[in-house]
Design a binder for these strands. Sequence first.
DNA 1: ATGTCACAGTCCCTGTGA
Length: 253
Amino acid sequence: MKVATWNVNSLTARWFRVEEWLVANAPDILLIQETKQDDAKFPFALLNELGYGAAHHGQGQWNGVAILSKVGIDDVVRGFGDNDPEARLIGATCGGVRVYSCYVPNGRALDDPHYVYKLKWLAQLRDLVDQRDRSMHIVVGGDFNVAPHDLDCYDPSVFQGATHVSEPEREALRAIEATGLVDLTWSLHPDEQIFTWWDYRNGSFHRNWGLRIDLLFVDPELRAITTATYVDREARKGEKPSDHVPVVADFAL
DNA sequence: ATGTCACAGTCCCTGTGA
């Protein structure tokens, strides 16, 4: 079973890249963030033609998360059930695996109310996954807007006093892991610098000024049967790329 | 560190968010 997560930065603007990527890579499950569409605009019919069932938690102008699946899609939940107006979480059961697509708030700055919202959001996610059905495999993936370790940041000195690397955010990720999940990329490639996002500005991609902020958290049994995990850097090249690349994992399921 | 991109509103530019 091949599972991927990708912040597409507008499915409207990126559809031709997403469609091309789905055909070329044929993941069983794709977790999408930042669709920036409402449900009426989401391409359910086009996805069905490609063999995917889909569930979308859309908002319109901002945010928006989705799950695409070739292996069934049931028991869909949207958000934390707290009437959050921002569409940042969707969960479903696909092929016997519980999956979540997460778009964690950016935070903006350490003294911004949005940063408080970010930490609260991560704490709510921890509580949600802590209450999971532990008889089922789980994949919690998405754009976490946190680089878990200094190695996940091209230059930690540039990020002094900024979001994405602060200790409370990293601690919030460790609290999620403490429910019994592993950061799959880090777990299998602990000594490699692997980035998933590069700013559009400054020629950041060509300078490799990136961050690893797109993550897949999985249960240890799923990690044990992981045959590969990698990022698709090619997706950051070419016409109208997203600023994020897909993170892919293959499981012997 | 700010060489970009996407969106909405009102329209061919500006403010906002990332």
